[in-house]
Write a protein that binds this DNA or RNA. Structure first.
Length: 202
DNA sequence: GGAATGATGTACT
DNA sequence: GTACATCATTCCG
């Protein structure tokens, strides 16, 4: 199976990447790679779409009501994973961002599939590349992410973020309302690489 | 204890 | 484009 592949060599992200303003971190994550090393195989994709979820003041954020058993991982230090179950049957993957203890995170919504394509296809049960990682629950399934990754440290782990050599330019980023929420629809906290063919929706 | 709801995906019309 | 699967968490009484 042939795929487009970036010639740039990704580099490991350190914890600083995840600190600071969560919308700024969300923008910075576009173009970075999400990588999962498992059983000697490398499954990876390039992040093309994300959403920022802020602290208690953000009514659409899971941390809105304060810490609970479910959202506990959101209050860990930046760079940890927050994995939760949605609609009783899917899981979504977030990276904790901002500052420890405030409950902010970036939801990864879509990837351009780059490595481990065969494994992704077998996990997803469909061969069309466009359907492998074009949605938060799809990419979680394709990369083999699950509830066991909730709360894990992404810095230096088997599941991690790797930075592209050059960040993408701000002009290529589009912002818009977050998907699937009913509150704070006026906030434009969904960020995507403009015109990218791998988005969950245009 | 009970009911509503959800950061979705898939199948089908 | 619309319907529906499916269940933990949350909120209300």
């Amino acid at each position: 199976m042939s795929v487009t592949r970036s010639s740039r060599t990704p580099g490991l992200a350190d914890r600083e990447l995840f600190r600071g303003s969560t919308p700024a971190v969300a923008r910075r994550l576009l173009g970075a790679w999400l990588v999962h090393d498992e059983a000697g195989e490398r499954i990876a994709g390039r992040i093309v779409e994300v959403e920022a979820y802020l602290s208690r003041a953000d009514p659409a954020s899971h941390s809105h009501g304060g810490p609970t058993a479910r959202n506990a991982s959101m209050f860990l230090a930046p760079g940890h994973a927050y994995v939760y179950r949605i609609y009783g049957m899917h899981h979504c993957f977030n990276v904790v961002t901002g500052r420890k203890g405030i409950g902010e995170a970036v939801l990864i919504r879509a990837l351009e599939p780059l490595e481990g394509l065969e494994t992704m296809v077998s996990r997803r049960g469909r061969a069309r590349a466009r359907e492998l990682c074009s949605g938060p629950a799809k990419l979680v399934q394709a990369l083999g992410i699950g509830p066991r990754h909730d709360g894990l440290d992404l810095v230096g782990g088997a599941l991690r973020i790797e930075l592209a050599a050059e960040p993408i330019g701000d002009v290529t980023i589009r912002a818009g309302p977050r998907v699937g929420i009913s509150k704070a629809v006026d906030l434009h906290l969904r960020f995507a690489i403009a015109g990218d063919p791998w988005l969950s929706r245009p």
